[in-house]
Design a protein around this nucleic acid. Sequence first.
DNA 1: CTATTATATGCACACACATGCACATGTCAA
DNA 2: TTGACATGTGCATGTGTGTGCATATAATAG
Lengths: 116, 116
Amino acid sequence: MTATNRAITADACLRALDAEFFKALCEPSRLEVIRAMIKLGPADVGDIAGQTPQDRSVVSRHLQVLQREGLAISHKEGRHMIYQLDGPAILEKLCCAVAAVEALVPLCCPGTKTTE
Amino acid sequence: MTATNRAITADACLRALDAEFFKALCEPSRLEVIRAMIKLGPADVGDIAGQTPQDRSVVSRHLQVLQREGLAISHKEGRHMIYQLDGPAILEKLCCAVAAVEALVPLCCPGTKTTE
DNA sequence: CTATTATATGCACACACATGCACATGTCAA
DNA sequence: TTGACATGTGCATGTGTGTGCATATAATAG
């Protein structure tokens, strides 16, 4: 049965570990965009780009990625596009990952007996 | 003061969001390696590679990345290298990220007033 | 000692993607 | 309508890195 449990846990973990989501979080310059978004709160592309050395178009693309992966939301205000981090959505994703890994620990924790 | 709080929260988040750690989690084939490790428990490179279409050398490199970033541990057994996920270490990293994002929610949650 | 097996590494290649420039689109001011 | 500004997109380039082959290193079997 342990083998079956492992397979189930593995599926649950892989489902919780969304590759595209984490990919959005592992680009250094995109993390700097996130830092700027936290510092500024809701802000337009120009203001966010003003906090980073990258070109505005590059920052715009990073913001699109963050929105596509559910880390940010946006709304139009005249000719400005206001971006904002979606804290609760990020938190939920991370909590799902935590729950999956918690179920993994009894199976994979170093020092745990591998009884099979 | 809110601006200062934002800067502090931003620094805390960026510290918790270790780019290298998440980079190890955002490669699809590496995630398949992780799936195999969960299914097998402690196992050598050959057995893990047997669960993936990639070459053994590729899997070996993925395992090195997982170990370098603290997601896995290994020990030598004769001519076999036994790899194992470090569940508690992964959990700790994720929990740090959760804690940082929890502090971020009151500042960045959609619908939250931006009083500054 | 020799042969076989397990793993890691050097190398070359391919592909994804971040980057910046130029330009198109859309919006407001006059 | 015209001009100025904000944003997004097409395109070309460079870099990082995943991938597989050949090979080196280590270790056991005979």
